[in-house]
Amino acid sequence: MAEADTHQRSLGRQAAKLALYALGMFGFGFLLVPLYDVFCEVTGLNGKTGGKYQYEQAQASVDESRAVTMQFTANNNAAMPWEVRPMQHQVTFHPGELVQVTFYARNPTGQRMVAQAVPSVVPFKSADYLHKTECFCFTQQILDAGEAVEMPLIFFVDRALPADVSKMTLSYTLFDVTQNFAAKGKALSAN
């Protein structure tokens, strides 16, 4: 009988171990989220671009021997009523050169609204070489009813950009995040 008890206990232990393993895999599912972000950043998957970048003169000497064209587009997600467009549709520059462009946005509704711009760049293999030192996509944009704004974007393209890339497209999609913003308890009342 004592033998059977030990046996039952060891079965219980194994079951617990296996359950722990399952729990670990549940955690692994969530771990895939940051892993994916790292993976995207390394490979430029989905044309995700990095965050704010410090422009250092030393590393960013300009490569005058070649020119790159950057094309801009701006789109609204379906329920987003803002007018949004790039004020320059494309610019041509040298790798390493600091470039500034502006986007225009206007909130035509009668409410104060919050927007988040999501950038995406193609070709994907160029995403890693686009460095933005200033972008309206770094923060959420808040516009009062009827308010318009010109939003700056300052960037440069790394000299190491693959030689076969001569044209890139940087696209912004505007999402309405007013409800999320309000839900997080931030003040949205006009001031």
Partner: peptide, 22 residues
């Protein structure tokens, strides 16, 4: 099963959070 059913549970949990918890 032990390796992937928890991942499925994870993905639907993320959905649940996206839908109801912002």
């Amino acid at each position: 099963l032990l390796a992937v059913m928890p991942v499925l549970a994870g993905v639907v949990t993320m959905m649940l959070f996206d839908i109801h918890f912002g």
